[in-house]
């Protein structure tokens, strides 16, 4: 059954029509060309497809597109022009936290969701907050360090 819905995607209003039970991930990547959202497992385990829905971190593969009607979806493309992104970007670069890069867009959005709720997290709080975002390359040290650094250097942004 076709449903019409309207969402705000990275600040722009998008009208979409289709089967409302489809995965948000598939609609973002296949219909809307939003390939900055990476697909790692398509079953809610790896976090590579993380997006923000009204600021809440979700695995877009576990979210039916019908549920975003009237809501605001932010992917890394809609986040990368913000000062908060710039603080995270600098911190990730400073500690060389990016290896293969596949988990990184999702990881950065997970960091944003954490810092928005808790601007000065501890190491353990960072680890808990990104525990739904798998990384096979780094061992996580650098990513945790980058997020803590961003929270300190980006004082006042969150």
């Amino acid at each position: 059954m076709k449903t019409q819905l309207t969402l705000k995607l990275n600040g722009k209003t998008v009208n979409w029509e289709g089967d409302s039970s489809r995965k948000l991930l598939d609609v973002l990547r296949d219909d809307l060309g939003q390939v900055d959202v990476k697909c790692g497992c398509r079953e809610g385990e790896c976090g590579a497809c993380s997006v923000l829905i009204d600021g809440l971190l979700v695995n877009s593969c576990m979210f039916a597109v019908g549920a975003v009607d009237g809501r605001e979806v932010t992917t890394i493309e809609g986040y990368r022009d913000t000062d908060r992104f710039r603080a995270l970007d600098k911190a990730f670069a400073d500690v060389s936290a990016v290896q293969c890069g596949y988990c990184i867009p999702g990881m950065v959005l997970a960091a944003e969701a954490l810092l928005a709720a808790n601007p000065r997290p501890t190491d353990a709080e960072v680890r808990a907050a990104i525990s739904g975002n798998l990384c096979r390359c780094t061992g996580y040290n650098a990513i945790v360090e980058a997020i803590v650094e961003a929270s300190e250097e980006g004082e006042g942004l969150w």
Binding site: T75, D89, S96, V98, G101, I104
Partner: peptide, 11 residues
């Protein structure tokens, strides 16, 4: 800064 940092982090 790693050469491929930019395009990997900004998607």
């Amino acid at each position: 800064m790693k050469k491929d940092h930019r395009e990997k982090i900004d998607g």
